[in-house]
Computed example of a mutant assay.
Amino acid sequence: MADVSTIGFGGTGLMGAAMVRRLLQAGHRVMVWNRTPEKAAALVAEGAVLAADPAELAQHCETVILCLTDTRAVEQVAFGSNGLSHRPGALRRVLDHSSISPTATRAIAQRLKEQTGADWVDAPVSGGIAGAANGALVVMAGGDAAAIEQASPALRAYARAITRMGDSGAGQVAKLCNQTVVATTLCAIAEAVSLAQRSGIDAAALSTALAGGWADSVLLQTFVPRMTTPPAQSIGALATMLKDVDNVAEAMQQAAVHAPVLMAVQERFRQGKAQGLGEADLSQIVRVAKPA
């Protein structure tokens, strides 16, 4: 029998796991699914219930939240042989925190609505793993206003702001705008760090020297230390950002936006992946700006 008060969650990687923990801490009952079940074991030990497949989430939960790697993964979870659309007993809405293309999002939303009657809300986030753990994420949402409002109590467990940007796909467009600024800024910081190092000054001091000035930002304060002292733990892979930058480039082309800066950033991230840095922390884009 469906327990509509339980929230379903698919994709318990670093970001997803942090979100699930916040949901549990807020008192929500959570049913989780992950492609590799072992990666959800710690969450089950903390009170979550493990689902055998996405279809089980849809059978038992009105709201299902996804945090997946790319478009292919999202489509498989939604429409695969044991996907959400296979057994949508309780399903009323899906919130997708994955960063995928707006075009793919609109197609997925329409298909899910036709097959199950459920709403699809694209709800990409910004703030990173630390933001999820601290309940400080910002959510950029696209889709039905009522569906977003109905899902808001769950979102507020890990988000400090939820903004509806428009209809289906609008949240993903907003995320692409976010990633345009983030990726471009990361490359600028990497080049600044390299300039400081090659000029013989203490690059690590840049975060202090520039604090409070126009160049200061969360990204500057986060990544100057990580670029000058390689981090022990990753907060995001270079290849994941490249996936987003590729989606930005596609959206720019479709919208007829002249984007020479973004094209240069895309090439920089492609160079990083070609150098074998795809799984490295985002900060290691500095190794492309300043090859060893």
Score class of each variant (00 low, 15 high):
residue 14 L to I: 12
residue 15 M to H: 12
residue 16 G to E: 06
residue 17 A to D: 07
residue 17 A to W: 11
residue 17 A to K: 11
residue 18 A to F: 02
residue 19 M to P: 05
residue 19 M to T: 03
residue 19 M to Q: 15
residue 20 V to P: 07
residue 21 R to C: 03
residue 21 R to K: 13
residue 21 R to T: 01
residue 21 R to E: 12
residue 21 R to N: 11
residue 21 R to I: 00
residue 22 R to V: 07
residue 22 R to N: 11
residue 22 R to S: 11
residue 23 L to N: 10
residue 23 L to D: 09
residue 23 L to C: 13
residue 23 L to V: 09
residue 24 L to M: 11
residue 24 L to K: 11
residue 24 L to A: 09
residue 24 L to P: 13
residue 25 Q to F: 04
residue 25 Q to R: 15
residue 25 Q to Y: 04
residue 27 G to S: 10
residue 27 G to W: 10
residue 28 H to N: 14
residue 28 H to D: 04
residue 28 H to K: 12
residue 29 R to H: 13
residue 29 R to Y: 03
residue 29 R to T: 14
residue 30 V to W: 11
residue 30 V to C: 13
residue 31 M to K: 15
residue 31 M to S: 12
residue 32 V to S: 12
residue 32 V to C: 11
residue 32 V to W: 10
residue 33 W to M: 05
residue 34 N to C: 07
residue 35 R to V: 02
residue 35 R to S: 09
residue 36 T to S: 15
residue 38 E to K: 14
residue 38 E to I: 01
residue 39 K to Y: 09
residue 39 K to Q: 14
residue 39 K to F: 09
residue 39 K to I: 00
residue 40 A to K: 08
residue 40 A to I: 00
residue 41 A to F: 07
residue 42 A to R: 12
residue 42 A to G: 08
residue 42 A to D: 10
residue 43 L to H: 05
residue 45 A to N: 08
residue 46 E to M: 08
residue 46 E to N: 07
residue 47 G to A: 08
residue 47 G to T: 06
residue 47 G to Q: 05
residue 48 A to H: 10
residue 49 V to N: 06
residue 49 V to L: 14
residue 49 V to K: 14
residue 50 L to C: 09
residue 50 L to M: 15
residue 50 L to W: 05
residue 50 L to P: 00
residue 51 A to R: 01
residue 51 A to L: 10
residue 52 A to I: 01
residue 53 D to R: 01
residue 55 A to W: 03
residue 55 A to Y: 02
residue 56 E to H: 05
residue 56 E to T: 09
residue 56 E to K: 00
residue 57 L to S: 01
residue 57 L to Y: 03
residue 57 L to Q: 04
residue 57 L to G: 04
residue 58 A to R: 00
residue 58 A to S: 05
residue 59 Q to Y: 10
residue 60 H to T: 02
residue 60 H to D: 05
residue 60 H to M: 08
residue 61 C to R: 05
residue 61 C to A: 12
residue 61 C to D: 03
residue 62 E to C: 07
residue 62 E to H: 07
residue 62 E to Y: 01
residue 63 T to R: 13
residue 63 T to A: 12
residue 64 V to C: 01
residue 65 I to T: 01
residue 65 I to S: 02
residue 65 I to W: 04
residue 66 L to V: 01
residue 66 L to S: 06
residue 66 L to T: 09
residue 66 L to E: 00
residue 67 C to E: 00
residue 67 C to N: 14
residue 68 L to S: 04
residue 68 L to M: 05
residue 68 L to N: 03
residue 69 T to K: 13
residue 69 T to P: 02
residue 69 T to N: 12
residue 70 D to L: 09
residue 71 T to C: 11
residue 71 T to Q: 15
residue 71 T to Y: 11
residue 72 R to D: 10
residue 74 V to W: 10
residue 74 V to M: 13
residue 74 V to D: 02
residue 74 V to K: 12
residue 75 E to N: 14
residue 75 E to R: 15
residue 76 Q to L: 11
residue 76 Q to T: 14
residue 76 Q to H: 14
residue 76 Q to R: 15
residue 78 A to N: 10
residue 78 A to K: 03
residue 78 A to P: 00
residue 79 F to G: 08
residue 79 F to Q: 06
residue 79 F to T: 07
residue 80 G to A: 09
residue 80 G to R: 07
residue 80 G to F: 04
residue 81 S to M: 08
residue 81 S to Q: 14
residue 81 S to K: 11
residue 81 S to C: 05
residue 81 S to V: 07
residue 82 N to T: 08
residue 82 N to W: 03
residue 82 N to M: 06
residue 82 N to Q: 15
